[in-house]
């Protein structure tokens, strides 16, 4: 049975159909939670809250977007709320703007072929992970949805109710900020 049929059945009160939709999407939503929120406990909360909310608001789901996009919307709203409440080391919007400003002294050594870049380089992963986590929530969420989860600009625009130019700007700034952090790492390592 396809998604549309399952959604229709679930809306008319078929709980088995709803459970099938959960089954098909739960890993995606859980991983989104892990990536945005950074730990298992919060990802577990996100998972439960997303499906409880989805179940409760199912009668309002009009099918204008796909069920996936709709779920992502619920999940990212929850994640953003959670991130905003949290007190962790976030960088300022100004800092992130600076990193993408051409006037700013960008680190320009080309480390893209540095032999230190190995997918098993745990230190490098740690630095990057930390840098992603320090992005302001509205940047981090978009960066993860686009560059890591591979969602399209228009999907993200639907999920977050933001214009495509706004989304593009945030992706761009996030990338350049992260690039800068990695450049600092390679500089310290002596390139």
């Amino acid at each position: 049975m396809n998604e549309l049929e399952l959604v229709e059945k679930a809306k008319s009160g078929d709980n088995k159909a709803f459970e099938e939709l959960v089954k098909r999407t739960q890993n995606k939503i859980y991983n989104l939670g892990l990536k945005i929120l950074g730990n298992k406990d919060d990802a577990a909360d996100l998972l439960q809250e997303t499906y409880i909310k989805a179940y409760e608001s199912l009668p309002n789901f009009e099918g204008k977007s796909s069920f996936y996009t709709w779920l992502y919307r619920i999940a990212t709203n929850f994640a953003l709320m959670k991130l905003r409440k949290e007190k962790y080391k976030k960088i300022s919007i100004n800092e992130i703007k600076q990193a993408s400003n051409g006037n700013y002294k960008l680190e320009i050594s080309d480390w893209s072929n540095n032999p230190q870049i190995q997918y098993r380089n745990e230190e490098l992963k740690e630095i990057l992970n930390e840098a992603i986590n320090s992005l302001p929530p509205k940047y981090k969420t978009i960066f993860i949805l686009h560059d890591i989860e591979g969602l399209s600009l228009s999907e993200i625009s639907e999920i977050l109710s933001l214009s495509i130019p706004t989304i593009k700007t945030r992706i761009h700034r996030s990338r350049l900020y992260l690039r800068e952090k990695l450049s600092e790492y390679f500089k310290k390592k002596g390139n």
Binding site: L106, I108, S109, D110, W111, S112, N113, I117, L124, K125, L128, I132, F143, D147, I148, R175, L176, L178, R179, L182, S183
Partner: peptide, 15 residues
């Protein structure tokens, strides 16, 4: 050129 190459690499690594 460096900025382009390293930005592309940053995205790849993030994935």
């Amino acid at each position: 050129e460096s900025i382009l190459n390293t930005t592309e690499k940053t995205i790849k690594l993030s994935k």
